[in-house]
Design a protein around this nucleic acid. Structure first.
Length: 230
DNA sequence: TTAGCCCTTCTAACCCGCAA
DNA sequence: TTGCGGGTTAGAAGGGCTAA
């Protein structure tokens, strides 16, 4: 896990930043975001030392170690807000043919739930293959946020707390495709895909990529950056 | 303590839609 | 037209819980 939203707080939090410092920390290009997240993933197991942030900063290029650390703290703050329920989540269920995530441990009740296999393995009429509901960019960004908070493998928590419109099975399936995509070769030839989004930060609207805020996350696509382990 | 059950995750196959 | 991307589903495996 890269971001410990519920764990020990960073030594300094984003709340301690002056508006100018906070603004400066927001001025990240998409390329810088990706470099930062890749570097963070590579150095995730290291202690929170100056040397670690120096290495990450060098990987990013035009950012200082302090910038990188502030960036991380902003992301951690965002994830904590989400975890504390201070950030309202979009109501994805509305109008979707998806179900509430399971609360009983049962893997869902509709999509992603395999019905009892018919005798002989044949599908019955009501076991018609369901038409897939494409993941939206918002869902994917929430997935990345959840991945950053709970880490790879905890699909149930990601489903319950982030991508509430998808079942754990769906999240796991999406993750499967995502990591396959991430590890795929021929990156130049391949088509564009939602899985090319490796950060929860949406493309900048004429400027910086901003971490999630309570207001931003309510309806638009500003879900902040999440770092993933690949 | 252990066997059995249930839940969850992982992996791969299958299928469909669509971009190249 | 074809191959790729992405969603669904099936089956296996592992872990946790509980009753005997």
């Amino acid at each position: 896990m890269l971001l410990q939203a519920g764990g020990a707080p960073p030594t300094t939090t984003a709340a301690h930043l002056t508006p100018a410092e906070r603004q400066a920390s927001l001025q990240w290009s998409v390329e810088e975001e990706r470099a930062f997240e890749g570097a963070l993933a590579r150095h995730i197991d290291e202690d929170d030392t100056e040397e670690r942030w120096d290495r990450i900063a060098r990987a990013v290029g035009h950012k200082s170690a302090m910038d990188c650390k502030r960036r991380y703290e902003l992301l951690a703050e965002d994830v904590r807000n989400i975890g504390a329920g201070r950030v309202p989540m979009p109501a994805y269920n509305e109008g979707h043919d998806t179900q509430e995530p399971s609360t009983s441990g049962v893997v869902g009740d509709k999509v992603g739930v395999r019905p009892k296999k018919a005798a002989g393995g044949a599908r019955t009429a009501d076991q018609e293959r369901r038409k897939g509901i494409p993941w939206t960019e918002e869902e994917h960004r929430l997935f990345l946020l959840g991945l950053a908070k709970f880490g790879k493998g905890d699909w149930r928590s990601i489903s319950r707390n982030f991508v509430i419109s998808r079942t754990p099975t769906q999240v796991a399936s999406h993750a499967q495709k995502y990591f396959i995509r991430l590890n795929s070769i021929n990156k130049d030839k391949r088509r564009s895909s939602i899985h090319d989004i490796t950060t929860a930060t949406p493309p900048a609207n004429g400027g910086a990529a901003a971490p999630v805020t309570g207001a931003a996350a309510s309806k638009d696509t500003s879900y902040g950056s999440a770092t993933i382990r690949t």
